Simulated scan of single mutants.
Amino acid sequence: MKRRMLSLAAVLLICLLSIAGCSSGQTGSEADGAGGNAAAESSASESARADSPGQVPAYSGKPYIVINDNQPEFEEGDFQKESFESYSDLDSLGRCGVAFANIGTDRMPHKERESIGMIKPSGWKTQRYEEVDGKYLYNRCHLIGYQLTGENANECNLITGTRAMNVDGMLPFENMTADYIKETGNHVLYRVTPIFEGDNLVASGVQMEAESVEDGGEGICFNVYVYNNQPDIEIDYATGESRRVEETSGTAGGQRTESGEQGSYVLNTNTHKFHRPACGSVSEMKAANREDFEGSRAELLRQGYEPCQNCNP
């Protein structure tokens, strides 16, 4: 990804992450505010945390949350001082998998990025909204940013991602990592995992993990989940289609309703999430956990249910 002008919040994020890493003698709870934890609490994510990508709360407008107390989960054998890159093959639906690298200065590009317009990641749609920065909802998002490894038109490294995920969520972590490598000459283990629900063609988000090698994580250390959402835009993750939220407000039949209006929803009594009846997750739900509901969205929220990230009911 090319560098862009960052907001003040993003600049603060980079500064905080740069000065507070995962010290080798501290756990995330002992070093409260270390590495990405400090950035998350000082910037967009505040206190939002999860133990794993499968337990992330529904999108609430924050670009990312901290995972596993900000501790990445690399194997001991991964830590080495030789650079490498590994990209998963596309699956049967044409979706990217894990991208993993040990990044040193020898992997970083020495020329301007070329066009990637010929790549059409799974779920790709060209959709414009005046309220979106740059007008286009979707970017071709590098899992491992171009500035880190120079991988450009690699279809195994590009997913359909919102402008918000690309710029507000991923870019500050990429910039901070690149700056550290250039300044120190050290290596950084770096892994990005796109998270797809069921057969959805668009990822719900990405898990980003990184840890600097030579200094045991003192310089770089984070484990975050970045949401693939765009404020005020509703996305069908199964297909990549989208619409403004207000275009569906006030309707029933499982579409988004105003707080006092009635709608049709499907509840998962195990996960405590609610879905639109047409959501792809409903077909995968165990019958014992399914419950149909007629009523207001506000009532479900009061009962402790959370909206599905994919159908955004």
Rank of each mutant, 00 (worst) to 15 (best):
S43L: 13
G123S: 14
S259P: 15
N229S: 13
S60A: 11
P172Y: 09
V202Y: 09
L16P: 03
N152G: 01
R276Q: 05
E241H: 06
C156F: 00
E131V: 15
A9G: 08
R4K: 15
L137T: 13
A9P: 05
I235A: 06
P72G: 07
N102R: 12
I159A: 03
E73L: 09
F100V: 03
L137K: 15
M1E: 02
F293H: 05
M5K: 15
V224G: 04
A252V: 06
L267T: 01
A210I: 04
I14F: 12
R244C: 00
E41R: 13
Y225V: 14
G240K: 02
F196M: 03
A34L: 03
H187I: 05
L171M: 13
V188Q: 02
F222C: 05
S259N: 12
F84G: 01
L201F: 09
D69W: 12
L171F: 12
V98R: 15
H110Q: 06
A298F: 04
L148Y: 04
V282T: 08
V188E: 01
G134D: 10
V167T: 09
I144Q: 03
I233Q: 00
V282L: 02
P231A: 00
E174V: 07
G28L: 11
S212G: 06
N102M: 10
G94F: 14
S281Y: 04
K125H: 14
F74W: 03
F222M: 11
D78A: 09
A101M: 07
I116V: 15
F100I: 02
Y305C: 13
H275A: 04
M118K: 14
G21S: 11
E85S: 04
S264R: 06
R243D: 00
A48H: 08
P121L: 09
E299F: 09
F74K: 00
I103H: 04
A58N: 00
S122Y: 09
L90G: 11
G253P: 05
S204I: 05
T248E: 04
G217A: 14
G54N: 09
S7W: 08
S242F: 01
P313E: 04
Y227F: 08
D91P: 05
I19Y: 10
A20L: 06
L6E: 07
L8G: 02
S18C: 12
A48R: 11
P63K: 03
M108N: 01
T239Y: 13
A48G: 04
F84K: 03
H142K: 00
G145K: 02
A203G: 07
Q55R: 14
